[in-house]
Design a protein around this nucleic acid. Structure first.
Lengths: 225, 225
DNA sequence: GATAACGAAATTGTTGACGATATTGTTCGG
DNA sequence: CCGAACAATATCGTCAACAATTTCGTTATC
């Protein structure tokens, strides 16, 4: 067998990659809840084959990120406000667990990094750079989850984030919520520095519940208007 | 509106049904960790087409229940002991959350049902009927999760159960573990009857952590032999 | 006897075509 | 002008055939 020419470089994306592309689109709010995902469009935009696109669809459907209806294709799943509440409560329990573990076994370097992130986020609030706050905040939560040493929980939490990512992003432009978050963070940081797992868990759970409360009130205000 | 499954007589199983069949096989320990899943075999045993089987594979891979390797097909994922620990810790946090919510808002009927289940499980230990204990135990946990009113958490927990179901099943034949579980259950029941969410959460978390401790010691004993 | 090279069989990856269904557009009658 | 029946298009579901790759048994060589 002589595979004559090096025809390798023209390799399309794999199903997993397409799924990640779709997830990214959803996080970036370029695909909004309820929007239909037409196979041909995805093929055009990603270069993948129809087969791979469908593979991606099934994976995302299993994650609960999209709906698959017979002969009607895929559409971005839209979470009800009650479901959003459930997402936040689940995250509170899981990230609380991680925060406790992190307080239990964080290294000196990790603690310093956490403190540094907290300081930089405070600067963001003063300087009015919410986009930077968002990425630092993601780093903050990732650091604690990875430091907790439970990759299963980390994956679960990531899946809980994606469906509400666009909502979360809005809150970064609300300076009152940011100030509240800063206070939450300092409480978490203090508990971690003191090596107090229970306090860290409690503070993290409160932090996330606060985030949901803010979101719920925002939604209620919009609904009344 | 929805012409579901039964109204289509001469049609093979859908992808979701095949996935559920595979899950059931894994839970029943008829498919053991590491075992390869050959497409043709699944087709023969379920009557589904190859296309549907692959659809099921991708769903299960997204759940993390099977591994999918290029040109090497699917195989039942085997969890390391460390991963099993992470499963149990995640479950402890999530089911603890549900137990708290359940204690907060369980109806009189639900409380009675919980008490009844506890009594019947005690009888199982005395009568030596571990299979029945297993199904009652499943009912117990399901009741608390559904009563908590968080279907998102319920789904997450179910996915955390499946990969360790065969291990869990073994423990039902250990009367010492069963007696320990009975005591855990009575503590949870008491907290629920008292309407004490924090105690209920704490007791549930302890219950599941105990379950893992037992499993870990069992594994250590086997490993030393 | 051990090892490497080879080839047949088994298994999975991919593509394209065709039927089934939903969606949209059009026409007709009132 | 409006609504209902009908036709055209778009989109999805399924399957069968083919290509690519691994796996495993066989043989040749040292």
């Amino acid at each position: 067998m002589t595979p004559p020419l090096s025809s390798l470089p023209t390799k399309g994306p794999t199903g997993t990659e397409i799924a990640e592309w779709i997830r990214a689109q959803i996080r970036a709010n370029r695909l909004v809840p309820g929007q239909r995902l037409v196979e041909v469009d995805i093929i055009r935009k990603t270069g993948g084959s129809r087969f791979k696109v469908r593979e991606a669809f099934h994976r995302l459907a299993a994650e609960g990120l999209i709906d698959l209806e017979e002969f009607r294709g895929a559409s971005v799943r839209e979470a009800s406000m009650d479901e959003v509440r459930q997402f936040y409560r689940a995250r509170a329990a899981l990230e609380g667990l991680c925060a406790g573990d992190f307080a239990r076994k964080a290294s000196k370097h990790e603690k310093e990094r956490l403190e540094s992130l907290a300081l930089r986020m405070e600067e963001c609030v003063e300087n009015g750079t919410p986009e930077l706050f968002g990425s630092l905040n993601a780093e903050w939560h990732t650091l604690i989850m990875q430091g907790g040493g439970n990759s299963v929980v980390e994956m679960l939490v990531k899946r809980l984030y994606t469906p509400v990512h666009h909502l979360l992003f809005e809150t970064f432009y609300r300076s009152d919520r940011l100030r509240e978050a800063i206070e939450d963070h300092s409480r978490i940081l203090e508990a971690v520095l003191n090596g107090d797992p229970e306090a860290a868990e409690k503070a993290m759970r409160a932090h996330i519940e606060n985030g949901h409360t803010f979101l719920a009130e925002l939604d209620r205000a919009v609904h009344h208007a």
